[in-house]
């Protein structure tokens, strides 16, 4: 069931100065997010992903198209009505954006105060959230007394205060070190599983997508150029941009200098084979090589686990008679994606 649905959404900013042309931030966005998804949106900076996510909670208004969130059409709503919509959507930020003049408790209380929740109910909800994010002992600390990871956990607690159905994470881990990133991502997964919150994750790091998303959209120059289940996009990226992102986290075929170095050390034919659970298992590839009496050496690659599925690219140096090598490559090509790299 879709919880967010965008159709033909545009966002155009007026020209900065007279004579300049207007800036098209988003161009014909179609996007559907299902309830319970962790939906990743990846792109380089300037691709429009921050603008896109801000349309969902109406921090930005669309120039055209339709945005339906939880059954409500946002385009054309008045500001006062949009404020009510925002109460049902939490948001966390790269720079945390905590209220520095308020304690941790005060930060989490603020959305509840805005929503008009009574003081007694606030107390119960804040305590619950503090325990959920593991900061019960920091209730009366100020943000500047917390580490980055702790700040983001306060941000998450604040975003969840009013029990929203949707959480928007705008580069939520980009300012954190790898270990803290992992902590925060695990927490987001718990938010998704335990509270059933639909999460939209904006990032430029494929690692984040690989780690928690089940669905991904790739953005470039204000458009969504590719979208699908994470495993699918990882195993069969269609566009150059997607391939670049996928290559940042999975072991792919060697290129350029890396390849040149391998060629130097391993004369003969070098092939890269994409392997995965669904259509090309490692053992099958290896069986075909042995059957055709081709000697082989695994010289590059690795196996990843994405959404519980095995996935990766293995690069072999092959030795044998040219007929045997050819036959082996043909056999493997029938069921796997093979690339002769040298």
């Amino acid at each position: 069931m879709s919880i967010i649905s965008m159709t033909g959404v545009n966002k155009v900013y007026p020209p900065r100065q007279r004579g300049q042309s207007e800036v098209v931030a988003l161009d014909g966005i179609d996007l559907t997010v299902n309830k319970g998804d962790i939906f990743g949106i990846i792109g380089y900076s300037g691709a429009g992903k921050s603008t896109l996510v801000r349309l969902v909670n109406a921090l930005e208004t669309a120039s055209g198209g339709s945005i339906v969130v939880d059954g409500t059409e946002l385009v054309g709503l008045r500001e006062s009505e949009l404020r009510r919509v925002r109460l049902g959507i939490g948001m966390i930020f790269q720079q945390f954006n905590l209220f520095s003049a308020k304690t941790v408790w005060g930060n989490i209380a603020y959305p509840l105060t805005v929503a008009g929740v009574s003081r007694e109910k606030q107390t119960a909800r804040i305590s619950e959230l503090l325990h959920f994010v593991g900061l019960a002992d920091k209730a009366h600390s100020y943000p500047d007394e917390l580490s980055g990871g702790q700040k983001q956990r306060v941000g998450i607690a604040r975003a969840l205060a009013t029990s929203p159905g949707i959480l928007l994470a705008d580069e939520a881990t980009s300012a954190l070190d790898p270990e803290t990133t992992d902590e925060v991502l695990t927490l987001l997964q718990r938010v998704n599983r335990e509270y059933g919150v639909t999460i939209i994750v904006i990032t430029h790091e494929m690692e984040v997508i690989k780690r928690i998303a089940n669905h991904v959209a790739v953005m470039e120059a204000g458009r969504i150029i590719e979208s699908g289940p994470v495993f699918e996009v990882f195993s069969h990226p269609q566009t150059a941009a997607s391939k670049r992102f996928v290559n940042t986290v999975v072991n792919s075929a060697p290129r350029d200098k890396e390849l040149a170095a391998l060629v130097e050390r391993h004369p003969g034919t070098i092939i890269s084979v994409a392997v995965n659970d669904t259509d090309a298992s490692q053992s099958e590839v290896i069986r075909h090589l042995i059957q055709r009496e081709v000697e082989f050496e695994l010289i590059h690659g690795g196996i990843d686990n994405i959404q519980g599925k095995t996935f990766g690219t293995l690069t072999f140096a092959l030795r044998g008679t040219s007929d045997n090598v050819r036959a082996a490559i043909d056999a493997v090509s029938r069921f796997a994606n093979v690339e002769e790299v040298a």
Partner: peptide, 11 residues
């Protein structure tokens, strides 16, 4: 960003 955070909770 702090103001944006306040806007995002519907203030």
């Amino acid at each position: 960003g702090v103001i944006e955070a306040a806007r995002s909770v519907g203030a």
